[in-house]
């Protein structure tokens, strides 16, 4: 039960239930879609970058609590950040969930404030892709990838 509490922390459940920045930007500068074919998680990220910073970011879609909360917290975390900062955050988040060295992983996540709540996902390897899907989609939007992103 403890591992489950680590996975489904209050912040996660709160963001899953009441996602922030949910919706789509009309006429965004960047846009991409992501999909986990196996579990059906779907997310579309739209953002506007002005003067080198994220001026606005929204997401829409549907999926499990982990993917929804991850998308919601991601939009909050990157608001106002530069593109370079956003890409660095993606690297840290991705490393935090996927590298095997737990110390390195946790210190990467620690850099990300609120996003550290996803440390619990590490104990559930099949759910890692749920948490990373919004981030992969975000990076695809920055890279102007037109094909939908898949994390499997």
């Amino acid at each position: 039960m403890n591992e489950l509490r680590d996975l489904y922390q209050e912040v996660v459940l709160d963001h899953a239930r009441r996602p922030r920045n949910f919706g789509a930007i009309h006429g965004p500068s960047h846009r991409a879609a992501g999909h986990n074919p196996l579990c059906g998680d779907k997310v579309t990220v739209t953002l506007t970058i002005a003067d080198g910073r994220v001026a606005d970011v929204r997401f829409e879609g549907g999926g499990c609590a982990i993917s929804m909360a991850s998308a919601s917290l991601m939009t909050e975390a990157i608001m106002g950040k530069t593109e370079v900062e956003v890409r660095a955050m993606f690297e840290e988040f991705h490393a935090g969930l996927t590298v095997t060295d737990e110390g390195a992983a946790l210190s990467a996540l620690a850099e990300l404030d609120k996003l550290a709540v996803f440390a619990g996902v590490r104990e559930f390897p099949v759910r890692v892709k749920c948490a990373t899907l919004p981030w992969h989609t975000l990076v695809a939007a920055l890279d102007h990838v037109s094909e939908p992103v898949k994390t499997e």
């Binding site: 489950l4 489904y8 579990c39 059906g40 999926g63 499990c64 982990i66 759910r127």
Partner: peptide
């Protein structure tokens, strides 16, 4: 409105295997 994958993960902790998906 709980996603089936969340159901599956939680049940698994009690040794219960159900299919979640399409």
């Amino acid at each position: 409105d709980v996603h089936p994958h969340d159901i599956g993960t939680i049940l698994d902790q009690d040794g219960i295997c159900v299919r979640a998906g399409h």
